[in-house]
Design a binder for these strands. Structure first.
Length: 476
RNA sequence: UGAGGCAUAGCGCAGUUUGGUAGCGCGCUUGGUUAGGGACCAAGAGGUCGUGGGUUCAAGUCCCGUUGCCUCAACCA
């Protein structure tokens, strides 16, 4: 029997020690390394490739919505930053500030962007004069910095990569519609590309983005039943447009203040993928964003013809646009199986003398660990079909898992019991801040989003008339 | 900032109680044998024990200071 290595032992039982399992997997699979500055991460090539695939998929969707990419500066003058009162108040504690440059103290300190509403607002006010300039829809891919107290790779880091979209409109209705459209784009993307089922909805006042009129979020359930906010879309009303004087001359000749929205997803999505699909063997990556979709492991590679057959197969798959790697290193096959499983590669092909003789290949899928034989002469269609099935089955499995862990609560005890056992808890809520705070205090759970289209008789906390049904959960 | 813990080879750790030549596993290097679920044999390389001071003939070990990191609470995509 083969000796288990240290690494496999270290990937803890996922049910028992989920956060530790998560950190081990992220580091050991070489997605990231810790950066020299506390709370930062160095994203290694394998991890960055996932991000590139996410970017590619999102960019295609943004383009369909008429959104163009642009870039704005990293440093924001403090005076810009302080124009919107609630915004600066909300972000002040976590902003890093540059006070010295070129060896001299700066006359005005520069904030390292925690988000770019202020600088984009400033620029938009210069660009927009007429209703003909609207709507304006821009997106930027960039890094932002928020000086967090505790951090975890991908889920919460001091510096992270994201995209932030910003739109400017002539009317409130149009800006609100844009907010909802982008939320829908995120949901479709999360489910079809990342195989992560999400619940979208409006957030409570308490959870609202600083400076927004309304914040909408998408919430994903992790393996341990905790929620992760995987993306947000904000309707900003005229809050930023007023502060930054984004005005336009309308058809009727009147000078009007515009309405804006903003929306973003971050490298946290990579954390969401890991925590949604991963198992005790390591990563399980959805084929659409997997850096390597298929790995070929030669068996008895030194025997005549094996490596040649593997190379030929690789060429065919590559030509079909499949991201494929031939592992011709001199590690043992068993080692390679574990290594690539750990890295979450969706499909593995084992090809040895016996298969070549029989004109077959053995395919193993990462999500179910099932192995099946396929004829070599139709390898491309077999792998394409397998990748599509893995993608679909991963979403369905995650959805079934999540749906089985959504419960209803009538009172505080049930809320507590629900979140303690790793569930999303739907409960009636009167709408007051006191009840929301009490849930946090007693159950250590927060209001994630309103459950759209659901009603309840009374508030599960105070028993007064319920205004909404809300989803409570413990969150990352 | 409140509380607890850790710091010894690239990684994970033992050694500290009772001071006496710096250890183990994995990984790495070289050569050989292997190959359908983390192979085996042999030979190697690699550490001023986080850091500053003190006690002692002698400190990884005892004493004082200091720094960094981790977990929990508070803050958050």
């Amino acid at each position: 029997m083969a000796k288990e290595t240290q690494f496999v032992e270290q990937i803890a039982d996922i049910e028992k020690d989920f956060p530790q399992w998560y950190t081990d997997v992220v580091i050991k699979t070489k997605l990231v390394d810790y950066g020299p500055v506390k709370g930062t991460m160095v994203i290694r090539p394998y991890g960055y490739a996932i991000w590139e695939n996410i970017q590619k998929e999102l960019d295609a969707r943004f383009k369909k919505e008429g959104v163009e990419n642009a870039y704005f500066p990293l440093l924001i003058p403090m005076s810009f930053f302080t124009k919107e009162a609630e915004h600066v108040e909300g972000f002040a504690p976590e902003v890093a500030v540059v006070t010295v440059a070129g060896g001299e103290k700066l006359a005005e300190p520069l904030a390292i962007r925690p988000t770019s509403e202020t600088i984009i607002g400033t620029m938009c006010s210069k660009w927009i004069q007429s209703y003909r300039d609207l709507p304006l829809k821009i997106n930027q891919w960039c890094n932002v910095m928020r000086w967090e107290k505790t951090t975890r790779p991908f889920l919460r880091t001091s510096e992270f990569l994201w995209q932030e979209g910003h739109t400017v409109h002539t009317t409130a209705e149009e800006a609100e519609a844009s907010t909802m459209t982008m939320l829908g784009v995120y949901k479709e993307f999360a489910e079809n590309c990342l195989a992560i089922p999400v619940i979208t909805g409006r957030k409570t006042e308490k959870e609202r983005f600083a400076g927004a009129v309304a914040t909408y979020g998408m919430e994903a359930m992790m393996h341990d039943g905790k929620s992760l906010q995987a993306g947000t879309s904000h309707y900003l009303g005229q809050n930023f447009a007023s502060a930054f004087e984004i005005k336009f001359l309308d058809k009727d000749g009147a000078l009007k203040t515009a309405y804006t929205s903003s929306w973003g997803v971050s490298t946290r999505l990579i954390g969401a993928i890991i925590m949604t699909h991963g198992d005790s063997r390591g990563l399980v990556l959805p084929p659409v964003v997997a850096p390597v979709q298929c790995v070929i492991v030669p068996i008895a590679a030194r025997k005549g013809g094996v490596l040649e057959a593997c190379a030929k197969l690789k060429g065919e798959l590559e030509a079909a646009g499949i991201r494929v790697v031939l592992d011709d290193s001199d590690n043992s096959p068993g080692w390679k199986f574990n290594e690539w499983e750990m890295k979450g590669v969706p499909v593995r092909i084992e090809l040895g003398p016996r298969d070549i003789e029989a004109g077959k290949m053995l395919c193993a899928r990462r999500d179910t660990l099932e192995k099946e034989e396929y004829p070599l002469d139709s390898a491309v269609s077999a792998v394409e079909g397998l990748l599509a099935r893995v993608q679909k089955d991963m979403l369905e499995a995650a959805r079934a898992r999540r749906d089985s862990r959504i419960v209803y609560a009538e009172n505080m005890d049930e809320i507590l019991r629900g979140v303690e056992t790793g569930n999303f808890v739907k409960a009636g809520w009167c709408g007051c801040r006191e009840c929301e705070d009490k849930v946090k205090e007693v159950a250590a759970a927060t209001a994630r989003v309103y459950a759209e289209g659901e009603t309840a008789e009374k508030c599960a906390v105070c028993g007064k008339k319920a205004e909404h049904v809300i989803i409570f959960a413990r969150a990352y």
